[in-house]
């Protein structure tokens, strides 16, 4: 027990001395993770939309060639960045780009480190998201595309108005996954000198050798960040799902009363639906909410 007491005392000591540095690290980690996840999602959506542009044999040969090329490029991007460690990608971009371009592209100073980190984490997330988005798009019933096309929407309109809003809802858990992974994995950016939460730990223990207490602070810190992220994502899912009920709209109040009168046991002119609805509510109350009917 006294070991824990000692650890607690050390943690308190460390936190007392270095709180601002830890907090600064947390802030940097969060900024990088949030921004990179957002940019990565955009890259993913772009890849997903480009990847699903329909083409038929009757199309012009040039168009077909470009579409094919586009798919190959996206595929190579996904495979390369998904298939190599992010630490090495960071090294190649931060040190490699200036080297191969004879310093035409160089990352200088703190802003340079930020830029390089953002680029690496973003394109990494993008590579994962591209596949998730593709899965999300495929999972949407083809009838939705038919319906959109039948009222004259082009591919872009179909995607932005109909398919992606539904796909985003479906892949939100995966976006959350990526966000949480990013919160933790941005720690590898210490390799190019990025000052995130973990880098602060390396710095602080380098001075005072209090490895274990500092690691404990790190653990608690990361867990707090990821738990908050999970909570916020769940909340977002709920908001996106919207309300389960809706209001009938009717100008004539008599008609309104006629259409919506619902005695719990007797049913209504819209019986089919309200019976189902009642049964579902009953089941939900009994067994908790299921998402099986989606």
């Amino acid at each position: 027990m006294d070991k824990f007491a000692e650890l607690g005392a050390d943690i308190a000591l460390l936190w007392g001395t270095y709180a601002s540095r830890y907090l600064n690290g947390i802030l940097n980690t969060l900024i990088l993770a949030v921004t990179a996840t957002l940019v990565g999602c955009l890259i993913g959506f772009l890849c997903g939309v480009l990847n699903t542009i329909p083409h038929s044999r009757q199309d012009h040969a040039v168009k077909r060639f470009f579409l094919k090329l586009l798919r190959v490029i996206v595929r190579v991007y996904v495979e390369v960045f998904r298939g190599t460690p992010m630490v090495l990608q960071a090294v190649f971009i931060y040190y490699g780009l200036p080297y191969f371009t004879d310093n035409a592209v160089a990352f200088r100073g703190i802003p340079g480190i930020w830029a390089a980190s953002l680029i690496v984490v973003s394109i990494n997330t993008g590579a994962y998201m591209a596949e998730s988005v593709r899965g999300g798009i495929i999972s949407i019933d083809p009838g939705q595309t038919d319906g959109a096309k039948a009222i004259g929407m082009n591919h872009f309109q179909t995607m932005t108005s109909v398919i992606l809003p539904q796909a985003i809802r479906n892949i939100l858990p995966q976006i959350g996954n990526n966000f949480i992974i990013n919160i933790k994995d941005t720690s590898v950016m210490f390799i190019i000198g990025f000052f995130d939460f973990f880098a602060q730990h390396r710095n602080i223990v380098g001075v005072n050798n209090m490895y274990f207490p500092s690691a404990a602070i790190e653990m608690i810190g990361y867990l707090c960040m990821t738990l908050t992220a999970s909570f916020l994502l769940r909340l977002l899912e709920k908001v996106l799902d919207g309300s389960d009920s809706y209001e009938l709209v009717q100008g004539d109040s008599l008609v309104l009363a006629a259409g919506t009168y619902s005695h719990p046991d007797r049913g209504t002119p819209f019986d089919e639906h309200s019976k189902e609805q009642r049964e579902r509510i009953r089941q939900e109350l009994k067994h908790g909410r299921t998402r099986g009917d989606r």
């Binding site: 019933d141 009838g143 929407m153």
Partner: peptide
């Protein structure tokens, strides 16, 4: 226009939005 066997209403929109989206986006 076309009406389908499986309705194909846009699941992410309300009834009204379903009937408006084509007019605003396409027309």
């Amino acid at each position: 226009g076309m009406v389908f066997q499986s309705f194909n209403l846009f699941n992410n929109m309300t009834v009204l939005q379903n009937c408006m989206v084509g007019q605003t986006k396409v027309l």
